[in-house]
Simulated assay, not measured.
Amino acid sequence: MHPTLAPQLLDPLTLGRLTGLASFDPAVVVDDFSTPEAVAALADTEVILSSWGCPPIDAGVLAAAPRLRAVIHAAGSVKHHVTDACWERGLQVTSAAWANALPVAEYTVAAVLFANKQILRLAAEYRQHRTPGDWSQSYPTIGNYRRTVGIVGASRIGRRVIELLRPYDLDLLLHDPYVDAEQAAALGTRPVGLDELCGQSDVVSVHAPELPATRHLIDRRRLALMKDGATLINTSRGSLIDQDALIEELAADRLNAVLDVTTPDVLPADSPLYDLPNVLLTPHAAGSLGSELHRMAGAAADELARYAAGLPFAHPVLPGDIHRSA
């Protein structure tokens, strides 16, 4: 992982657990497997504890790590570092993606509830006029009662968002090609096609994985289907949205957006998304930050405890699921 990440990730409680479970040296933190320090460590390594910034574990790394049997990832996706060579070796792999999904879902729920209350616009007007207005008259359709929220993707995050939104008086729509009508109903949602979801929803929230098939999943045509005044929330990946088309809709003040991810990840300084009043733009902050990092580290320690006890991982990553996961 990134060496600067380790002290943020590994709180004293988790460090104590890790050192009690394995021969673990918290001073050996590498983001390059070719350094002498890394090569020396790999020779005796049975388990790699990884997180953001882990380089690819390819055939060369595996050759230097003859005892390696497992990768425990204290973050989300393993696609960036777990290579085909790892699966060919038969490595066990687990990820704390479930733990990282929790703050993303919480961010999304807050964004949904604020979006339906038109908080961005109300706050801007209040700041400008500095007097209370008759908001019910100015915004007769605001509120979270009987509004429709469309969830694109029943991923870990998408399912958690649905779970957290169920107590509210909302109509929840779901589009996911891997979820049938019975499963959608069990989640508390109504399954619909993506066009119908875009057309009916007051808020559309995107939780699908970044795959070739999902590039511009919300394209110009589907953005045009969205209701006037609707809000698009994206905490997935920027590539799932046709960003140029979205900017046109936002600049015309027809839609609103909450964007935690963009294309590119760091926008150029002259991007209009920074200044549009109907956009809440955050710097990929929905995922684990600060104290939330400790939840992922604790999840990794839990999996190491299971491995040490000869038990299967509670949250395994399986090679057959990689093609449709984040």
Rank of each mutant, 00 (worst) to 15 (best):
A38C: 11
A6R: 15
I142M: 15
L223S: 05
P12L: 11
A309N: 11
L240C: 03
T4A: 14
Q8C: 09
I162G: 02
T14Q: 07
I142Q: 14
Y274T: 05
G16T: 14
A257T: 01
P272I: 01
A124E: 13
S77C: 11
A105H: 00
G60Q: 12
E163K: 12
A257V: 00
I247W: 02
L170K: 09
H207V: 01
Q137K: 12
T262A: 12
V279T: 09
S239P: 04
T19Q: 15
L240D: 00
M296V: 00
S50H: 07
P26R: 10
A123V: 08
D321I: 01
P132G: 03
D84V: 11
I157E: 04
F114Q: 15
M296K: 06
A286Y: 02
N256D: 08
S236K: 02
T4P: 00
H315A: 14
Q137Y: 10
A224E: 14
R306I: 01
S77K: 06
V179D: 09
P277K: 08
T214R: 10
Q200S: 13
T19W: 02
G60F: 01
H73I: 07
I142Y: 13
T19H: 08
A269W: 03
L304E: 11
D31E: 14
L225G: 08
P3N: 10
A124G: 10
P66S: 09
D270Q: 11
D275H: 11
V61R: 01
L62W: 08
A224C: 07
Q128S: 15
M226F: 06
G298V: 00
R67N: 15
T108G: 01
Q92R: 15
A257N: 06
A40F: 03
A38V: 04
S136L: 13
S205D: 00
D134N: 15
A99I: 09
V261S: 04
H216L: 05
L281G: 08
R254V: 05
E163Q: 15
H323N: 08
I233Y: 00
V47A: 05
A41G: 06
R69P: 00
S34V: 02
Q8K: 14
Q92A: 15
N278K: 08
E88D: 15
W87I: 06
D253W: 04
Y107E: 01
G53L: 12
Q200L: 13
T189M: 03
A305P: 09
D228H: 11
R254G: 04
E210L: 14
I322E: 13
I151Y: 02
L259M: 09
G20D: 13
I218W: 00
H323S: 14
R222T: 03
L280R: 12
L250C: 07
F313P: 04
R156M: 11
G188V: 04
I241A: 06
I322D: 11
H315E: 13
L21T: 02
F313V: 03
P140R: 10
L165F: 03
E292L: 12
D11Y: 07
G320K: 01
G199E: 13
P268G: 06
T35V: 10
A208W: 02
E303N: 06
L49M: 10
S201D: 10
A115M: 08
R159P: 10
D202K: 02
D195K: 08
D171I: 03
T282N: 07
S138H: 11
D253F: 04
Q243G: 02
R127A: 15
D84C: 01
A96V: 10
Y139G: 01
T83E: 13
V112I: 14
